[in-house]
Design a protein around this nucleic acid. Structure first.
Length: 362
DNA sequence: AAGCCATACAACCGCAGCGTA
DNA sequence: CTACGCTGCGGTTGTATGGCT
């Protein structure tokens, strides 16, 4: 039985022979495809138009990139999938020469399993574990800054880092609590009535004391609808490391989002990638967010993991945030920011070194 | 060498969206 | 408005291949 679109024709199914490929290539390169439903007849093929289209798009097009996916392509797929989900055609647009079918197959056969083996839900990119207990925060205290501290070793040694995702649309409660996933996975709820979001960017840079070892730190950005100044900090608690910028950058945000902070540190793509694969290059993001004077503090960081393929209009929405004199964002797509908060970094390993430093406002 | 199994990838199927008559 | 055809998309299935016993 053939497809409905060409049920009147006797159509062949299954794998394409080299002869059929030749016919299709010859026809399309000389005449173009026009209406796909007309292609089989014109090309002398006993296939349905749909099959011809698929064969051309997924396999015969000259601009297609052959060969296995590179590490960089893999990371891009993961990053974009975190934002877009199973929208394979959209994801494939970030990978020149790759098709949606190819990306989908690669995801299902390789990446999905890799993420699952690391304890990540391939759909949400969050940890699959769920048990939690509560740690009560001091009563009647407002959180003014939330700094995630973590050890910060060289990549060639035991890496420990942390990644936090902000789950948007979570209700911020008034009961001032930190919910913790033992031992170190935490969800922070902010005890005020204002809409608040905390997002984290991973920074990658070179350790000057050891030229061939990359390091990382985490920048935590707290935004609030309240108009109050919040802290932006990139902090490295390691005593042996002197290069981490410690930036406190009060700024006013009009950004509207709510969220919880969730630690994904148990998962570990380090083993697989060996590099920190933040899809948001802090060298691009942070200077746009913080004021000019503080940009210098970020200099010296090595941001060689630069995903140019996220340069579509969606990413541009982030880059194109305009900051006016008092630091308010304008032209800002709140919804998109919420959806992108989750892609702020990769997952890391070695929970044992994690520690938290919560600053309370007395 | 043969059989079995897992994996990768090619191809198909059904559906939704869109344009047009 | 509606029916129809075309295209694109995502889920699923089928097939080839390679490794293991």
């Amino acid at each position: 039985m053939g497809h409905r679109c060409c049920s009147k024709q006797k159509v062949k199914r299954g794998l394409w022979s080299p002869e059929e490929d030749d016919k299709l290539i010859r026809h399309i390169t000389t005449h173009g495809h026009g209406s796909w439903s007309a292609v089989p007849k014109l090309a002398g093929l006993q296939r349905c138009g749909k099959s011809c289209r698929l064969r051309w798009i997924n396999y015969l097009r000259p601009e297609l990139k052959k060969g296995s996916f590179t590490q960089e392509e893999e990371q891009i797929i993961i990053d974009v999938h975190r934002i877009l989900g199973n929208r394979w055609a959209q994801i494939a647009k970030h990978l020149p020469g790759r098709t949606d079918n190819e990306v989908k197959n690669f995801w299902n056969s390789c990446i999905k399993k890799k993420l699952m083996s690391q304890g990540l839900d391939p759909q949400t990119h969050n940890l699959m574990s769920s048990s939690h207990h509560e740690i009560k925060a001091p009563k009647n205290k407002n959180i003014t800054s939330f700094v995630v501290s973590h050890n910060h070793n060289h990549i060639k040694q035991s890496i420990s880092s942390s990644i936090f995702s902000v789950n948007s649309h979570e209700t911020i409660t008034n009961n001032s609590s930190i919910i913790s996933h033992p031992p170190n996975n935490s969800i922070l709820t902010v005890p005020n009535s204002q809409t608040t979001a905390i997002s984290t960017f991973n920074n990658q840079y070179q350790n000057p004391s050891s030229s061939n070892s990359a390091c990382s730190s985490t920048s935590t950005i707290v935004t609030s609808t309240s108009g109050a100044a919040w802290n932006l900090k990139a902090q490295n608690p390691s005593q042996n490391d002197h290069i981490t910028p410690n930036i406190t950058s009060p700024y006013i945000s009009s950004f509207s989002a709510s969220g919880n902070v969730q630690d994904l540190s148990r998962s570990g793509l380090w083993d697989e990638f060996g590099i920190l694969g933040s899809s948001f290059d802090p060298s691009e993001v942070l200077p746009r967010i913080i004021s000019e004077g503080q940009q210098q503090s970020l200099q010296g960081q090595n941001h060689d993991h630069d995903h140019r393929t996220l340069q579509d209009h969606e990413k541009e929405k982030i880059w194109e945030m305009e900051i006016d004199k008092v630091g308010n964002y304008s032209n800002f797509d709140h919804g998109f920011m919420e959806s992108t908060l989750n892609i702020s970094g990769v997952m890391c390993q070695d929970l044992s070194s994690m520690e938290y430093d919560l600053a309370w406002n007395y």
